[in-house]
């Protein structure tokens, strides 16, 4: 259960205050499929980063499963990210010198899982994402779709309750983008909360709940 209470995020820019988010109230239940849409610069990414605990609000409160996580120390927020959230980025963010398998393994390494267990889990994930014959390939030897599949495998390897995707198809052609969306929706059907930022209405309309943002405010939520 994610609840944002009057979350605002202001940026200081050249002496001027810029309100990227203003008094956002948002409740997201477990297993929901939410798209966040809106024009460029409206504050979609800023909102997603708040939910992801990658950024701190200027004001407001963030409750995660009823617990106030707004002011937690860095390391504690890092632990929450590690254990509860998976991230899918527009530009994949794979580490270029590591193989596909090693990239998928990172969250397990950060959690201190032992290497035998890690290898098993990674092999299983590679199989279920159709990457089994790509395990030793480095990102520059993979197609865009394969890169995003590796990124999704990495995002789900810790079995997080929530998947956060910021324009996951923004860097892919239409057909590949469709496959990635199918994959994410399939994970949602298995019970993962899916929060996806997109400016593509065709993709955004697919979500069961659609939040529209204009100028840092929620303009519609249905």
């Amino acid at each position: 259960m994610i609840s944002l209470r009057k979350i605002s995020r202001h940026y200081q820019q050249g002496g001027q205050q810029l309100a990227a988010l203003q008094d956002i109230d948002l409740e997201i239940g477990p297993g929901e499929y939410i798209s966040i849409m809106g024009p460029s610069g409206s504050g979609k990414s800023t909102l997603l980063n708040q939910i992801a605990l990658l950024d701190r609000p200027t004001s407001g409160t963030y409750l995660l499963h009823g617990r106030d996580v707004t002011g937690l120390p860095d390391d504690e927020q890092a632990r929450i990210r590690r254990e509860n959230m998976g991230f899918v980025f527009q530009f994949f963010h794979l580490i270029p010198r590591l193989s596909a398998a090693e990239n998928i393994e990172i969250p397990l390494v950060l959690s201190g899982v032992d290497s035998v267990l890690r290898k098993q889990q990674v092999a299983k994930a590679m199989l279920s994402f159709g990457l089994q014959d790509r395990s030793t390939h480095r990102p520059d030897q993979l197609s865009g779709g394969e890169c995003q599949r590796v990124a999704i495998a990495r995002a789900t390897i810790m079995h997080p309750g929530t998947l956060l995707a910021d324009e996951p198809t923004g860097n892919l052609d239409q057909a590949t983008g469709k496959q990635v969306i199918d994959l994410l929706e399939q994970l949602n059907r298995q019970g993962v909360t899916l929060i996806m930022v997109t400016h593509d209405p065709a993709i955004g309309e697919r979500a069961s709940r659609r939040v529209k943002i204009v100028d840092g405010r929620i303009s519609s939520d249905a």
Partner: peptide, 15 residues
């Protein structure tokens, strides 16, 4: 970018 990714994935500053 790699540092940012590791931090997003839950690496602590100490790591």
């Amino acid at each position: 970018a790699e540092i940012g990714l590791l931090r997003a994935l839950g690496a602590r500053r100490r790591n």
